[in-house]
Deep mutational scan, measured.
Amino acid sequence: MQVTWGNVTVTFSNPEEAKKYAEKVARKLGGQVELHNGQFRIK
């Protein structure tokens, strides 16, 4: 499962870890987490 924002992509084998990481990054950037085609995207 991947977490992407800007031109950065981070890949996780565990979807739960990916979700936690995406939420943490979104909080830092003041963005929203979207699940899109099996990727968490931060907008």
Results as ranks from 00 to 15, higher is better:
residue 6 G to A: 08
residue 41 R to G: 04
residue 20 K to P: 02
residue 39 Q to D: 06
residue 27 R to V: 10
residue 35 L to K: 06
residue 8 V to N: 09
residue 7 N to T: 11
residue 36 H to E: 13
residue 22 A to I: 03
residue 4 T to F: 07
residue 36 H to V: 15
residue 27 R to H: 12
residue 17 E to G: 06
residue 41 R to W: 15
residue 13 S to R: 13
residue 9 T to N: 05
residue 21 Y to F: 14
residue 41 R to P: 02
residue 35 L to R: 06
residue 6 G to S: 07
residue 33 V to F: 05
residue 39 Q to C: 08
residue 23 E to S: 06
residue 23 E to D: 11
residue 2 Q to I: 12
residue 30 G to A: 05
residue 1 M to R: 09
residue 23 E to K: 07
residue 16 E to F: 11
residue 42 I to G: 01
residue 30 G to D: 05
residue 13 S to T: 13
residue 4 T to N: 07
residue 11 T to A: 08
residue 38 G to P: 01
residue 14 N to S: 13
residue 32 Q to H: 14
residue 23 E to Q: 09
residue 1 M to L: 12
residue 29 L to T: 13
residue 33 V to E: 00
residue 40 F to G: 01
residue 18 A to W: 02
residue 23 E to P: 00
residue 29 L to E: 04
residue 16 E to H: 12
residue 28 K to S: 09
residue 15 P to L: 12
residue 2 Q to R: 10
residue 42 I to P: 03
residue 38 G to K: 05
residue 41 R to L: 15
residue 18 A to M: 01
residue 3 V to D: 00
residue 26 A to F: 02
residue 17 E to V: 12
residue 9 T to I: 11
residue 40 F to M: 05
residue 25 V to K: 04
residue 7 N to K: 12
residue 4 T to P: 01
residue 5 W to F: 09
residue 8 V to T: 10
residue 35 L to C: 07
residue 35 L to H: 07
residue 34 E to R: 04
residue 38 G to S: 04
residue 28 K to C: 15
residue 29 L to D: 02
residue 2 Q to P: 04
residue 5 W to P: 00
residue 24 K to L: 13
residue 18 A to L: 02
residue 19 K to M: 10
residue 20 K to N: 10
residue 34 E to Y: 12
residue 14 N to T: 13
residue 32 Q to R: 14
residue 10 V to G: 01
residue 43 K to R: 13
residue 22 A to N: 00
residue 27 R to I: 13
residue 35 L to A: 06
residue 16 E to V: 13
residue 9 T to R: 06
residue 41 R to F: 15
residue 5 W to T: 03
residue 39 Q to K: 08
residue 42 I to D: 01
residue 27 R to P: 01
residue 22 A to Q: 00
residue 13 S to H: 12
residue 37 N to V: 03
residue 25 V to L: 14
residue 40 F to Y: 15
residue 5 W to E: 01
residue 29 L to N: 05
residue 36 H to Y: 13
residue 24 K to A: 15
residue 29 L to F: 11
residue 26 A to V: 05
residue 19 K to V: 06
residue 43 K to M: 12
residue 20 K to Y: 08
residue 24 K to G: 08
residue 38 G to V: 02
residue 2 Q to M: 11
residue 42 I to M: 01
residue 36 H to A: 09
residue 28 K to Q: 12
residue 20 K to W: 10
residue 12 F to K: 03
residue 24 K to I: 11
residue 27 R to N: 11
residue 8 V to Y: 13
residue 5 W to G: 01
residue 19 K to P: 00
residue 43 K to N: 12
residue 12 F to P: 00
residue 22 A to D: 00
residue 39 Q to G: 15
residue 3 V to C: 03
residue 10 V to C: 15
residue 20 K to S: 11
residue 42 I to T: 01
residue 24 K to S: 12
residue 22 A to E: 00
residue 5 W to A: 03
residue 26 A to Y: 02
residue 2 Q to N: 09
residue 10 V to F: 09
residue 34 E to F: 10
residue 26 A to I: 03
residue 27 R to Y: 10
residue 16 E to C: 10
residue 27 R to L: 14
residue 5 W to Q: 02
residue 5 W to C: 11
residue 7 N to Y: 09
residue 23 E to N: 08
residue 28 K to P: 02
residue 18 A to I: 02
residue 33 V to N: 00
residue 4 T to A: 09
residue 12 F to M: 04
residue 9 T to P: 01
residue 9 T to Q: 05
residue 27 R to K: 14
residue 1 M to H: 14
residue 32 Q to D: 06
residue 14 N to L: 07
residue 22 A to W: 02
residue 9 T to H: 05
residue 15 P to T: 14
residue 36 H to N: 08
residue 15 P to Y: 15
residue 42 I to R: 00
residue 34 E to A: 05
residue 2 Q to Y: 07
residue 33 V to K: 01
residue 11 T to Q: 10
